[in-house]
Design a protein around this nucleic acid. Structure first.
Length: 579
RNA sequence: GGGCGUGUGGCCUAGUCCGGAUAUGGCACUGGCCUUCUAAGCCAGGGGUCGCGGGUUCGAAUCCCGCCACGUCCGCCA
């Protein structure tokens, strides 16, 4: 699709500057580190000279001045300036504007995407127990996961989004018992007419009975034991119990534009004996020990500290544990991909570490790279499904769309018809949910507050979608879309600032992918929308009479619209043409 | 008790990996801008011991050590 040595303009410019610096300080051993100056007036790219000072026994400013006089002529740099110990490069604006506009207008929806890598990555996310509806705490997982799926695809990887389905644990066993033993008449009418909401009451009631009655507890234990032995009839019962619940959860995920490619049931690794294989292999390692016929790995040597250096992988009764099966799952994943990413709650940190060590002991080289996110709590404390202290994802979806609808009606009620207002409300409401979650880095813990989750002001999704709609409005009215744009007439400071920012999009994708930092896309989007609004204020488009300036400005608007749409796509958020 | 993570104006947040120029932006607050491409917009203003204390460095929000607060984990649970 792209030429092999494809490079975006800004990368090319950075490459040239690195070469230039190397040519004027040939004995510089370290890699050339370039920075972005804090102010546009100080140039586009900066090279700090402080580390050279002890080598040349001169002060940094003198070195910068000296280097400035030696920079040879080249294609990207307009001029250089020595300032405060930095050698600052000012790029040729026309060139960066021209090449960036050309790239965007040619590549359109693939602008920003990186070269194909022919590498497969499995991103495991969500993997929630299918025993009831998703709540907003868990919703952080699919949103981070799906955004990373989109970012990795844009970065050139082949991605398989996987959901690891726990079909043999306590939770689904309780659900299964409940559905088979509790009468429909005992179940209250659910808040939403969805199977996950309908069936969660069976789980809740069964959980209560289990705590009250020994025979219920025994019955549930039997289900667990049978499933761990791979008993087909039991697994079948469990499957028919959780399947509708899972379908309900998937409906909610689809509603917020999340799609999972494969569902991998945990039982698979018991049935195909790979969990047994894991046990047999671990048994042979020098770290394996026995305690009352149960087996564990002693992880002291691997830096695991505290009371728990024993990592049990086989029970006294010879059955495997969740973690053992998880190791088998990762063995399987490692055989099917070049890289593995796992989106996990911070409570899985220890288990993740234990699995990674076990995989190394089994000589697996493709070790999962975990992305941990912190918990979402409510102002009064933790969320708890059983105590009813939860906000469901479905609650959030409903509220968000309703609130968005009120806003559209308030602003455009007299101009737009009902269908259109509902479509816009859907796009804004869903976008708000995804944006407000993804814009903060995963490791910060979140206290859920409605006013923040439904934030529609300032750094929020309507601001960005509105910028996109504004661009669309101009483009619709302009009617003619120029094929070629003359960058010579793109001279206003706001235009140049905007274009230089659009040039950064590919680098932003690259960095977001390399660091698994989905929130940086949200930040980039906000800055793009903000710069577009400044352009909108300073540079009228449709009223321009000179044809080539008119065409150039339409080109700038179109390019911005494309980048906004592409970045929104990375976040799984709709780009409305009108709002 | 131990491990891991987080701590940035009243509230939320970027920057922390890889140390650099007056610490990013939003909410709220004060004032201004709609006969001109959608004001879900723009402009200006006030507001900061970057949790605390040491250290390394020409230079620390960023690195090192100690402490404090919050989250999370430390089951033959998942």
């Amino acid at each position: 699709m792209f030429p092999f040595n494809m490079q975006y303009p800004l990368e090319e410019a950075l490459g040239e500057i690195t070469t230039l610096i190397k040519s004027i300080i040939p004995d510089h051993k370290h890699s050339i580190k370039l920075e972005t100056p804090p102010d546009q007036k100080m140039g586009d790219i900066a090279f700090p000279c402080f580390s050279l000072a002890p080598i040349y026994k001169k002060n940094p400013q003198n070195i910068a001045e000296d280097l400035a006089s030696k920079v040879p002529s080249n294609t990207w740099v307009d001029h250089v300036k020595a300032q405060g110990g930095y050698l600052n490069f000012y790029l040729n604006s026309t060139k960066i504007v021209q090449t960036t506009l050309n790239e965007i207008l040619t590549r359109k929806e693939t602008y920003g995407h990186l070269e194909l890598r022919h590498q497969k990555v499995i991103i495991e996310h969500t993997s929630a127990n299918p025993n009831g509806p998703l709540h907003v705490g868990r919703a952080r997982n699919p949103i981070i996961g799906d955004t990373l799926v989109r970012i990795f695809r844009a970065a050139g990887y082949m991605v398989d989004a996987q959901y690891y389905l726990d079909d043999m644990g306590k939770q689904v066993a309780i659900l299964t018992w409940g559905i088979r033993h509790i009468s429909k008449t005992e179940i209250p009418k659910p808040q939403y007419d969805k199977p996950d909401h309908r069936y969660v009451s069976y789980y809740q009631k069964a959980h209560k009975s289990m705590q009250e009655k020994h025979e219920v507890q025994n019955a549930i234990s039997t289900i667990i034991k049978q499933s761990e032995k791979g008993d087909p009839a039991t697994l079948d019962q469990i499957h028919s119990a959780y399947k509708p619940v899972l379908d309900g959860m998937i409906t909610s995920l689809n509603r917020i534009n999340i799609n999972i490619d494969s569902y991998v049931p945990e039982s698979q690794f018991v049935l195909d004996k790979s969990a047994d294989y894991v046990v047999n292999q671990l048994k042979k390692t020098p770290y394996s020990h026995e305690e009352d016929q149960a087996l564990y790995l002693d992880l002291k040597a691997y830096g695991i500290q505290g009371r728990n250096t024993k990592f049990f992988y086989l029970r006294q009764d010879g059955t495997t544990l969740y973690a053992t099966r998880d190791i088998a799952y990762h063995l399987w994943k490692a055989a099917h991909a070049d890289r593995l990413i796992n989106i996990l709650g911070e409570d899985h940190k220890l288990e993740s570490q234990q699995v990674a060590i076990a995989l190394k002991l089994l000589h697996v080289t493709i070790i999962p790279e975990p992305v941990f996110y912190s918990f979402v709590s409510l102002p009064g404390g933790k969320m708890s499904t059983r105590r009813g202290r939860v906000v469901y994802l479905d609650d959030l979806i409903q509220e968000s769309i309703a609130r968005a609808y009120d806003e559209v009606k308030k602003r455009r009620g007299t101009e737009l018809n009902e269908t259109k207002m509902q479509m816009i409300a859907e796009m804004v409401g869903i976008g708000a949910i995804r944006y407000n979650i993804i814009k903060v880095q995963p490791e910060k813990d979140i206290v859920f507050r409605w006013e923040e989750a439904l934030n529609f002001e300032g750094n929020a999704i309507p601001f960005i979608q509105y910028a996109h709609a504004r661009a669309c409005s101009i483009l619709t009215k302009a009617r003619i879309i120029p094929k070629k744009v003359d960058a010579q007439v793109v001279t206003h400071a706001s235009e140049i600032l905007l274009l230089k920012h659009l040039a950064r999009f590919p680098i932003t994708i690259k960095e977001a992918c390399e660091g698994c930092k989905p929130h940086s896309i949200a930040l980039y989007l906000y800055e793009t929308a903000s710069l577009f609004n400044q352009f909108y204020r300073d540079c009228p488009v449709l009223s321009v009479t000179e044809t080539h300036i008119l065409q150039a400005r339409i080109g700038v608007v179109l390019a911005t619209r494309i980048v906004l749409a592409n970045a929104l796509e990375l976040l799984g958020i709709a780009a409305p043409e009108e709002m």
